[in-house]
Amino acid sequence: MSKKVLSIVETAYRGTLEEQDDTILWLNHALKNNGLDVAVLLRANAVNYAVRGQDASGLRFGEGALAHPPEIDKDVEALVRKGVKVFLVTEDARERGIPDEKLLPGVEKLGRAQIPSLFQRFDQVWHW
């Protein structure tokens, strides 16, 4: 049986313009494609990944343009469609002034106090 892994994503917008992706969300999506049973918990600044309407288009350095800007909200939605459970820490969203109505519908909200019990559902917990 596949090991169950919870990937906690804390750092946000690290290299996402150069990569046209968040490399940790990308890796977890790839791990899921390769049969690992992963779930994602967005915490700290990474809760912003669940905000609808992110737009990093228009970046250009002389003749060099960013052809495919990252669309992290759509990447989160793609994870959810793939069957990856995505959680988000409500206090972290509230502290950053993110209103509930701006959050993607497929992301499950939980409070900080619920994190220890969430861990029990997984064989491994990785903190990125």
Binding site: S2, K3, V5, E10, T11, R14, I24, L27, A30, L31, N33, N34, G35, L36, Q124, W126, H127, W128
Partner: peptide, 21 residues
């Protein structure tokens, strides 16, 4: 790539991720 990492995680007793900030 991710394929090998997924296989390692399944096959090994422990995994530690040391991320960058």
């Amino acid at each position: 790539g991710p394929k090998e990492l997924a296989e390692w995680v399944q096959a090994t007793e422990a995994t530690l991720v040391i991320p960058t900030k």
